[in-house]
Simulated assay, not measured.
Amino acid sequence: MRTYTSRWLLAVTLGGALALSPLAASAYQDELFSLKNRWEHTVTELPANQRQGTLEALSDEAEALASQNPNEADVLVWQGIILASYARERGGLGALASAKEARAVLERAIELDPQGSNASAYVTLGALYDRAPGRPLGFGNSDTAERMFQRALEIRPNGIDVNFYYAAFLKEEGDIQGAREYATRAVEGTARENRQLSDEALRREAQAFLQAL
């Protein structure tokens, strides 16, 4: 199983959560919105030598927000995305603890929301299972990665991220024809309204990937 590379382009009880006032609920959404925007700025605009430290700080913020909202799937998905991005930037075996934490958080999010926040949880899990080292050191598994990507494609077949990361997975599995097909779908895919910067960056990466095949 392949190890992490830098290539891979992030407490309250349920009863307490239901009792939140509209103002408190709004505050949680505002904080999550801020995390999303700062993550997107980090992965699309910051130079490489600044990303790791920024993502580490964002992962701490995401953990704090998740501890206050442990039954909000969208919060957990974003905690997982940020942790996975941080693991990617760290690289090597030092990233494994963050990758394992991201996996656990994303699997919990899927228990709460089987759609995985419009497939985002499944895409990130697919990449994690693909890039992590295999047993006994890690949890990497190509078959599980494949299942995660397929589930993401069922939910959001036109997603740029879904198709791009699946294309990269197929290339490394030796399926060049499949990689070309899904890279083309990524180039022609639909950017999400709330993820335009990162999706358009992936579209450009998919174009370069397709040209190199």
Rank of each mutant, 00 (worst) to 15 (best):
K100Y: 05
L210N: 01
A109V: 07
R192V: 00
R90Q: 14
K36G: 06
V43A: 03
A127H: 00
A11C: 11
G53P: 04
A27W: 13
H41S: 13
L137I: 15
N158D: 15
L170P: 02
A27Q: 14
D60E: 15
A57Q: 12
G138Q: 07
I160A: 04
V12G: 14
N118G: 05
G126N: 06
D199Q: 07
S120N: 05
R156P: 01
E101K: 15
R151F: 05
A168L: 10
L20D: 10
Y129T: 04
A208D: 12
G91W: 00
P22H: 11
P47A: 08
P70K: 13
T124V: 13
R180N: 08
V105L: 05
E56I: 09
S67R: 14
G159L: 05
S198G: 01
I110R: 04
T5I: 01
A168P: 00
S120G: 00
G15T: 13
G92V: 01
L18N: 13
M1Y: 02
W78A: 04
A132E: 00
T184R: 15
L58Y: 04
A87Y: 00
R131L: 08
Y165G: 00
R88L: 01
L153P: 01
G91D: 00
K100W: 02
Q177M: 12
E72D: 14
R204W: 02
P70I: 04
Q79I: 03
A102V: 04
E101P: 02
L55G: 01
R195K: 13
G189W: 03
F209W: 01
S198D: 07
N158Q: 15
L213Q: 13
P133E: 07
Y28H: 13
Q52G: 05
L213G: 08
A132P: 00
A84H: 03
L128V: 03
L9V: 09
G53K: 12
I81L: 13
A145Y: 02
Q177N: 14
L9I: 07
L197G: 03
E31V: 06
L35A: 07
G134R: 03
A73H: 07
I110E: 06
A208I: 02
A183G: 15
A152E: 08
W8S: 09
A97S: 13
A208N: 08
L14F: 12
R108I: 03
A64V: 12
V187W: 04
A102N: 03
S67M: 12
L128F: 04
A102C: 11
E45N: 11
A104L: 11
